[in-house]
């Protein structure tokens, strides 16, 4: 199980590398989906089930809009996958940076693989993340209102940005 979780972590790094190595946006989206799905499995295997569910449903559902935009607005006649030399060069350079950092800084210690979590046993126990997110509605109601106000503000920001050619916030000079 420990090795499986380490495999999920390595796949998370690979997903981030697939986004960062400058492919066409069609393929960068694939890397982002890989990273988020693997991150869900990772959190699930450590026992953070509610946060993992929120990540899977809300994040991937919201990301669908970004995916549609990246397919429709960035129309490349010749999309670059990871087999092309430019993308491959970016990817290999980033891998080189990581390997140099690990070797030089001795950053990773493979003997400390254990992670302390709780494991629920029985009906009367509540997992940590369930009870923690419920705090958002009692003591953390200020943060809840701040987040809701931020989302409302973003509505007006978006409306102001995309209003029109002559009246919007961004216009051709």
């Amino acid at each position: 199980m420990t090795y499986f979780v380490i495999f999920l972590g390595v796949s998370f790094i690979l997903g981030a590398l697939a986004v960062a190595s400058n492919p066409s946006p069609y393929y960068g989206v694939v890397g982002l989906v890989l990273a988020s799905v693997v991150g869900c499995g990772w959190l699930m295997s450590l026992g953070v089930s509610f946060i993992s569910l929120a990540l899977f449903m809300i994040y991937l559902g919201g990301m669908l809009v970004v995916f549609v935009y990246s397919v429709s607005l960035a129309a490349d006649p010749y999309p670059e996958a990871w087999g092309d030399w430019g993308v491959m060069g970016y990817g290999l350079g980033l891998v080189l940076v990581v390997v140099l950092g690990v070797v030089w800084g001795e950053a990773i210690d493979f003997w400390e693989v254990g992670v302390v979590t709780v494991d629920g046993g029985g009906v009367s126990l509540v997992r940590l993340d369930f009870s923690g997110v419920a705090v958002l509605y009692s003591y953390g109601v200020g943060l809840f209102l701040v987040a809701g106000w931020g989302l409302l503000l973003v509505l007006f920001v978006v409306l102001e940005l995309v209003r029109g050619l002559s009246r919007g916030a961004i216009r051709a000079v």
Partner: peptide
């Protein structure tokens, strides 16, 4: 456990960021 609301808040603010970026 009470710090698990921080990722939910960050999810909300990243939704703000994604919306503004797409606009």
């Amino acid at each position: 456990p009470s710090f698990t609301l921080v990722p939910i808040l960050m999810l909300a603010f990243s939704a703000c960021e994604a919306g503004t970026g797409l606009a």
